[in-house]
Design a protein around this nucleic acid. Structure first.
Lengths: 202, 202
DNA sequence: TGTACATCAGTGAACGCGCGTTCACTGATGTAC
DNA sequence: TGTACATCAGTGAACGCGCGTTCACTGATGTAC
């Protein structure tokens, strides 16, 4: 499968991810990606329908990266089936989520923009475009919580929504909101406060 | 104060707000605003240093609008000093926040972008740029909650953070996240769930 | 009250820029005989 | 094994677009005598 370039498609995605990493979705500029890959602008059209198609690929990568980090932090906690372990697992995914947002604001923002575009543009409903692996990870954690008796089943309903909203919200607030100037310590305390409140609230 | 145009500065802001309303901060295009105001592009430079200066004005308007809606929903609940009233007031501001986000996604997004830019660009720390009236409203609600004995003082700390994160998060999720396809009923239930969880968690 | 003048809000024309995208092409790759 | 050929990934040049911004200007407004 190595033609002239080798694997231009992947090279373009890599370059575009780098752009998104440092400047968010708007920085995913088709010409910049081809420049970085050492190729003519129009060469991109052999591999992507248009700029949006390239952006969609980047969004998928960003979302997958977020899921991978959540999964990785989950792997560090051994699941002995106890409620305490189940709560620790939930907290770990939340923390990983926020850490990813803070460490990679550009990718974090990008991860959610293909969803935004699917809203305006076409894209058949149900055919969700980007797969939301993070959502599935969160659901699994909550299921584990119920299974371990850490959470009464009658409180399980819509727990994803409550948990995700808090964790996503604190990420945005720390990045772009009134909390963006916080020092590292205060930031940690803010994140803990949010995670505490969610756990208690559920 | 009426020269040639009347009040071009305000007319440009109005036009720019309309742009932001339908397309978010990126839609705030200086030339488009002058076009709408029936004026030459460079006329804008009599009233704004550059495009970012115009955008900053729009951000302030958007943030003020958000605060106004929170304030308005607060005014509908008579404050008899009881804990129940204090909780209802908190909930009303949260609900107004989410409702604003859903009704005016472009303005909502714009309200928070001058903050994002102050982060990258210069802007002396402390000199916060856009004033965060919504934050102050929320703080006042939480103070009222403590005053009414609805919330023990030892739980007051960082309550703004927890409350705001949840409310901001559900807004983003409904607009751009996995919940963006929800119907009106499910949406209401999701918002209620989040508000319940916050109240319980605090 | 009338006239000369300074101010300055808005004009007209142009700049350089980088973008996404299209066209006809070239030349290396892999394939069939 | 060697040659003719089809494929198709990447080239080179160009397009039209709209943007932010700058220049020297014009002409209506308000002011001083």
């Amino acid at each position: 499968m190595a033609y002239h370039h080798g694997n231009l498609r992947q090279a373009l995605i890599d370059a575009a991810v780098t752009l998104a990493r440092s400047g968010g979705p708007d920085a995913v500029v088709l010409r910049a990606a081809t420049r970085e890959a050492g190729v003519t602008p129009n060469a991109a059209y052999r591999h992507f329908a248009d700029r949006d198609d390239l952006l969609a690929a980047v969004c998928q990568v960003a979302m997958d990266e977020l899921a991978a980090r959540m999964q990785a932090s989950l792997a560090e906690i051994d699941d002995d089936g106890s409620p305490a372990a189940a709560w620790a697992r939930l907290r770990a995914t939340g923390r990983a989520y926020v850490d990813f947002a803070l460490a990679e604001p550009g990718l974090f923002r990008t991860a959610f923009t293909s969803l935004a575009q699917a809203q305006h543009g076409g894209l058949p409903p149900g055919e969700g475009g980007v797969r939301m692996k993070p959502f599935e990870i969160l659901s699994a954690c909550l299921n584990g919580l119920v299974a371990s008796s850490g959470l009464p089943p009658e409180r399980r309903s819509m727990a994803e929504t409550a948990a995700w909203a808090s964790v996503h919200g604190i990420s945005e607030l720390l990045l772009y909101g009134p909390l963006r100037q916080l020092g590292a310590d205060e930031r940690d305390r803010a994140i803990d406060k949010v995670l505490d409140t969610v756990a208690f609230g559920l």
